[in-house]
């Protein structure tokens, strides 16, 4: 086990290195670049753009730029944004917490609701409720988020004026209540999709547990229904959900890109999209490396958990 872990970690470092190399290369080789945004600026000419490229070191061979970037990264220096010149890590941390707030809330809602709906659906399989939940989940999964978000804004902000149309806080307010007020709509819109995912997984996971021997034994022993449900069924059905949660962790980093755009939420997804749009390579690379670390850890965790749960799968 220990050896396997060390091996996997070693492999992960290699993968991380490859991801950084490939990411850096395709990013820099892609047509465009950080200076193309200045193309039509009055008074700026090709001569200015060429001079800036030299000053920013963008004219150096790509491999030299990469080694420079990697060397600084290994010394803990993530570089500075091409856009506002601030340290990449500081920028990421700022946006990360906005995303965590939004994703955390919506995740909490979707886990609670999704779990309940999933269990209920499994216990009353093929009931009206189960059908409605299934259809509801499928439809929720299939609605494009940006479309749904715009409709929600139209309804709740414009027509009913119950909720703000977007943003994270009212400037100058910043109270908890104000946060919550702004959080409701994006969190619920995002949660809709996640409730669907969680309820589907929870349903099938509960079905798996329902027919296992220990449940029958518990029932045969005459334990009260809710005790069997809570102690035996739900507890065991939740186990695979941990894996799912682990696998969903990295998606937090990518942020809820669409929801953040529609609801003007200053999170990671928006930052990532803007950074790609303006070819802000240092920030893009920073987010890429962080998300790669998350994905690799998540995958490793999932593999370990599967191995622990299923002894037939030997770790090699």
């Amino acid at each position: 086990m220990g050896r396997y872990l060390i091996g996997r970690l070693g492999q992960s470092v290699v993968v991380l290195f490859l991801v950084s190399l490939i990411g850096f290369m395709i990013l820099n080789l892609a047509p465009g670049g950080p200076l193309s945004q200045f193309a039509l600026t009055p008074g700026m000419s090709q001569a200015d753009i060429q001079r800036l490229a030299v000053q920013m070191g963008l004219d150096r061979p790509l491999i030299v730029q990469y080694i420079d970037w990697l060397g600084r990264l290994l010394r803990g220096d993530w570089g500075e944004s091409f856009r506002d010149g601030r340290p990449v890590l500081a920028i990421i941390v700022e946006h990360l917490w906005a995303t965590l707030l939004l994703m955390g809330t919506s995740m909490a809602i979707s886990i609670v609701v999704g779990t309940l709906v999933g269990i209920a659906g499994a216990i009353r399989r093929y009931s009206i409720f189960d059908y409605l939940a299934t259809v509801g989940a499928m439809v929720a999964l299939s609605i494009p988020t940006f479309w749904f978000g715009l409709v929600a804004i139209y309804l709740f902000a414009l027509k009913l004026a119950w909720l703000p149309a977007g943003n994270m806080i009212t400037i100058g307010d910043g109270s908890v209540l104000d946060y919550l007020h702004h959080l409701v709509m994006p969190a619920l819109v995002l949660a809709l999709v996640n409730v669907a995912i969680w309820s589907r997984y929870m349903r099938s996971s509960t079905l798996d547990v329902l027919h296992q021997d220990f449940v029958r034994t518990a029932r045969a022993k005459g334990l009260p229904r809710y005790r069997v449900l809570v102690h035996h069924i739900v507890r065991n059905a939740l186990l695979p959900m941990i894996t799912l949660g682990g696998l969903q962790l990295p998606t937090i980093l990518g942020g809820a890109l669409v929801a953040e755009t529609v609801f003007t939420w200053p999170g990671m997804g928006r930052l990532f999209l803007d950074s790609i749009g303006y070819s802000d390579y240092p920030v893009v690379m920073g987010i890429l490396m962080l998300s790669a670390i998350f994905v690799l850890l998540g995958n490793l965790l999932a593999d370990l958990l599967v191995a622990l749960a299923d002894p037939r799968v030997r770790l090699a």
Partner: peptide
């Protein structure tokens, strides 16, 4: 996309024709 459009594609005249709004002054 904008970053591609106004990079070398525009600057190095790699296009055939473009629709563009320019403030020439």
């Amino acid at each position: 996309p904008p970053a591609v459009m106004w990079g070398d594609y525009w600057m190095q005249s790699q296009f055939d024709s473009v629709v563009v709004g320019i403030n020439f002054l």
